[in-house]
């Protein structure tokens, strides 16, 4: 089956005063019909930038897409004209952003903000769009939806605003929803509600979802497949169970070990990955994670690893030494 979306060798750079910063360094992503793909990584690992590049929402300048292709239903989004791209955005691929407090227009009624895309893409009249906005608000669980379409964003709580964002993203029934850390700014209880809501809607409506997050707990509860990003590259990808139980990249292992556990060892000390995330000015010449890695060898500082097949079925790891992780696991 052909993937719905396939990103090949995407490279995005930002021209800054100190030089060119390579935020995304030749990544490949595939997304199939009806699946939830999680992209995981620390802040600054390039996960948001890579998906904003897909949407054509990188501010240019200073941003620049150096190379790569983004195939959506076989057509390259990066080669599309501005007009064609406008027909994709919000209609075929929609986005949910991180901060619901600032992502809604403060001086526009909620109903109008939802209706805007409906009138644009589905040619609805104002009355039809308003009716549909009420239905959408009901769908995402906002009580008293009819009255609330006339409210402004500041009259909603954070969790409710994120539901509004979701309703907005769903409005034109897109094939793909890109959720950029949609629960990061919310309380834990609200987080769970939002996750369950997205899961429910995804299975009811059969969309595909790309869920960007740095929270492995959330990823475990929502995703089918996971791609782990580090310093603008995908270092490991596989099914959610494989990645969580049989990590084959030292960075993934480090992330998993740094999750606080109730049943952790007696010392109560939290584990961390030594060192800091790498910022790539210029294209890297070796494994970006090498200087923080416990498995590093000379080779790690001389070559760039590609994504290798591993002993775990569908898992691919960008580590020369993935087999040593496998040996460790069996001890």
């Amino acid at each position: 089956m052909n993937p719905l979306l396939s990103v090949n060798n995407l490279t995005t750079s930002f021209n800054l005063d100190d030089g060119d910063l390579y935020a995304v360094n030749g990544i490949d992503i595939t997304l199939h019909q009806g699946e939830i793909l999680a992209i995981v990584g620390e802040s600054g690992s390039g996960k948001s930038v890579s998906l904003l590049s897909v949407m054509g929402l990188i501010p240019m300048p200073p941003g620049r897409i150096e190379e790569g292709e983004v195939l959506f239903e076989g057509k390259d989004l990066l080669k599309m004209s501005y007009r064609e791209m406008c027909r994709i955005r919000g209609n075929e691929i929609a986005m949910i952003f991180q901060d619901p407090m600032t992502s809604l227009n403060p001086v526009m009624r909620i109903g109008d903000q939802i209706g805007e895309a409906l009138m644009l893409h589905l040619n609805m009249t104002k009355t039809r769009a308003r009716k549909r906005a009420v239905e959408l608000l009901e769908l995402v669980g906002i009580p008293d939806a009819d009255r609330r379409t006339r409210d402004y964003p500041h009259q909603f709580s954070g969790g409710m605003r994120q539901r509004v964002m979701i309703a907005m993203a769903l409005s034109c029934e897109p094939k793909i929803i890109i959720a950029d850390e949609p629960t990061t700014a919310l309380d834990v209880t609200i987080q769970t509600q939002i996750i369950n809501l997205v899961k429910r809607l995804q299975s009811e409506l059969g969309m595909s979802v790309v869920w960007i997050s740095h929270d492995l707990g959330i990823v475990a509860s929502i995703a089918d497949r996971v791609a782990v990003m580090y310093a603008g590259k995908i270092v490991e990808k596989g099914t959610v169970d494989d990645i969580f139980y049989h990590p084959r990249h030292p960075y993934t292992l480090g992330l998993l070990k740094s999750i606080p556990r109730l049943d952790s060892d007696e010392s109560g000390q939290l584990e961390e990955i030594p060192g800091h995330a790498h910022v790539c000015f210029d294209q890297p010449s070796h494994c970006s994670f090498a200087n923080r890695c416990e498995f590093k060898t000379e080779r790690c500082f001389q070559e760039i690893p590609i994504l290798y097949e591993t002993d775990i079925g569908r898992t691919r790891s960008a580590c020369f030494h993935w087999s040593r992780l496998s040996e460790n696991e069996n001890v």
């Binding site: 949407m55 929402l57 791209m85 406008c86 027909r87 994709i88 955005r89 919000g90 209609n91 929609a94 986005m95 952003f97 901060d99 600032t102 992502s103 809604l104 227009n105 403060p106 526009m108 805007e116 895309a117 644009l120 893409h121 964002m165 907005m168």
Partner: peptide, 22 residues
């Protein structure tokens, strides 16, 4: 530079609409 302008663009609105409406 506000987030909601990016939201408006992500809906597929034309630059003209983003400018005047948002």
């Amino acid at each position: 530079g506000a987030d909601f302008i990016r939201t408006a663009r992500s809906k597929g609105l034309s630059e003209k609409t983003v400018l005047f409406r948002h």
